[in-house]
């Protein structure tokens, strides 16, 4: 497999430091500002600081821009996917301050100071994290478009069960919640996979959870 150009870009970005990314996005918005007239757009934009995968970014965002679009369009972290933009498919799932959210349903301006982990922050080819590796070994995807969101939810689901957060299928709210197939399936049901890899995803999550136990 050739390394995708995006991968090379990302490496270059890392080498050059994050200032280049921030500058690029500011330039894009500055142009928009010119077009709109500065008075109106000043109210339509906000300066925020976001820590993404351990790197702090100071960026100016359109107040209408979702966290998802900031990640994909401004920071060029396109591993977080846009499947529906309605919070219905889960492809945009990422971790914010340690909790999974649908990043398409959340405006970037609400995340000033937040700490975001995207799929790119989990691991890269050659250094996959255990969940990513388990998804490969269990063939837990086909087209791959929902996959980053599935992996983000998978990590979160194990944590939520261990934290004792009940779900619809938790039968005893006073007992320790077992990490059962039913619990995993229920909690993963916000992440749609149209290719239908659910059985393999379950196997991958179960393997990782057991290894961690």
């Amino acid at each position: 497999m050739p390394p995708p150009i995006e991968f090379e870009l990302r490496r270059r970005t890392l080498l050059a430091g994050t200032a280049a990314v921030a500058a690029a996005s500011v330039a894009r918005l500055a142009h928009a500002q010119e077009q709109a007239g500065s008075a109106a757009s000043a109210q339509q934009q906000s300066d925020i600081a976001l820590t993404v995968n351990g790197t702090e970014h100071r960026i100016t965002v359109d107040n209408r821009t979702t966290l998802l679009d900031v990640l994909r369009e401004d920071l060029h972290l396109t591993g977080t996917k846009k499947g529906c933009d309605h919070g219905q498919c889960g492809a945009c799932t990422c971790s914010v301050n340690g909790e999974r959210i649908n990043s398409c349903l959340s405006l970037a301006v609400l995340h000033d100071g937040d700490d975001v982990t995207t799929i790119e922050g989990r691991g890269a080819p050659g250094q996959l994290d255990p969940m990513q590796a388990a998804f490969v070994s269990h063939d837990a995807f086909q087209c791959g478009y929902c996959t980053p969101g599935q992996i983000q939810s998978a990590h979160a689901v194990i944590g939520e069960i261990r934290a004792g957060i009940p779900s619809h299928v938790t039968s005893d709210l006073t007992a320790v919640i077992e990490l059962t197939e039913a619990e995993i399936r229920e909690r993963m049901s916000g992440n749609i996979c149209r290719c239908g890899a659910y059985s393999n995803i379950l196997a991958a999550i179960t393997e990782v959870a057991e290894d961690q136990a």
Binding site: L77, K82, I119, I151
Partner: peptide, 16 residues
């Protein structure tokens, strides 16, 4: 697989 699980496989809208 490794590209897909790490979010680095580039889909159409993502070709910055």
């Amino acid at each position: 697989g490794p590209l897909k699980v790490s979010g680095l496989a580039p889909y159409a809208y993502e070709r910055h």
